[in-house]
Design a protein around this nucleic acid. Structure first.
Lengths: 190, 190
DNA sequence: TATTTAATTGAACAGTGGTCAATAAGGAGG
DNA sequence: CCTCCTTATTGACCACTGTTCAATTAAATA
């Protein structure tokens, strides 16, 4: 019979997100329940709904951070002193490295099929893709590369990540293959 | 009070699969419940468990057919009277068409994360990929194409299907893009 | 006709996401 | 110190899920 905790134990969005991050990252969205999260936090599942409208919104709050991370990875590569071809290679491989290093985050970002979650995620992936596309496009302006080609490249990198996400291997396990995949894609636009 | 139906209304695996196929195809694995299937069949949900161990097994029974279907789609294209380049194009697009026509089955075939379903699937995807790889490889022997390239092509097609599976569009909605993606991949091996 | 077997039912169980009245802690004003 | 009010929390409740299983009965067999 304690309908409210003392102030030093009050729940924050931050606390909920930290508890949820671990669970979502290890178990995946569908296999984590609000009651499990509440259990770790030592509160009731109802309390979470005071801070987040629903499971999907809680999830989305986490995902936003990961989009930013991917963007900054790509930006860093753009700033490096490399010729355009090598930069492209690094961007391709960098994308794959990100996807396989943060597999469940990637899953959240690009593989979620839950309708409710999907409603939250709309602009962010597009914004990230725009960033990717702009970088790639600017690096091969001198070639006859169309926007459609850039999209094909993205889908092809996405396929690589997706496949090896399912087979749960780390980036290092497929590093060589990643570079060869990147070279394969480079050949298509040369 | 009718704990058993008369013989002409008896349930068969076939009947259950037919009812389930429609639901799974339109709504996706997770959004179909055993009770919904039972409802369409006019029986209790318990009855289905007499014919199938669980939901995953029922689904897998359907998926097996789809692996065969994909194989025969590729085989049919191989038998057509086309030059090698056009055959390749058709195989690429045929793969995409299959993936987007049977989205939730494709999901189960190549995107599964559910552990229970995964246990059922083991050899089938490999066999299907072997068939794909053999066809592609034989169609471009005259070029300098490696097995690694074939694998990259597969991953790239896989990425296309995966992406548009998530965004739930039909094949016709992205038909043009599919052909352009195929052309993009052809360029990589030319 | 009596007995066995096979197929079906529906209640029950433990779990899910989500809602909401009831409740109490903490701060504000007097 | 004592009200009053806002705010955060609880846990019962709802409708749903996949799955199990004793009870039941139609059909097949002897």
């Amino acid at each position: 019979m304690s309908p409210r905790k003392s102030v030093e134990r009050e729940l924050t969005r931050e606390m909920i997100m930290n508890a949820a991050r671990d669970l979502f990252t290890t178990k995946g969205y569908e296999h984590v329940s609000m009651r499990q999260i509440a259990n770790i936090l030592g509160c009731s599942h109802g309390a979470i709904y005071y801070h987040f409208k629903n499971k999907a919104e809680l999830f989305f709050a986490l995902v936003e951070d990961h989009f930013k991370m991917l963007n900054s990875i790509l930006d860093d590569i753009m700033k490096q002193e490399l010729d355009n071809r090598e930069k492209l290679r690094q961007i391709f491989v960098g994308y794959i490295r990100f996807g396989l290093t943060y597999q469940s985050h990637y899953e959240i970002m690009f593989l979620i099929k839950d309708d409710e979650v999907k409603n939250f995620i709309n602009q962010e992936p597009n914004h990230t893709y725009d960033n990717f596309a702009k970088s790639v496009y600017s690096l091969c302006e001198w070639k006859k590369v169309t926007l459609q080609d850039v999209w094909s490249i993205f889908l092809s990198l996405h396929g690589f990540v997706t496949h090896y996400c399912r087979h749960v291997v780390g980036f290092d396990d497929v590093k060589d293959m990643a570079y060869r995949h990147a070279d394969f894609l480079l050949r298509a636009i040369e």
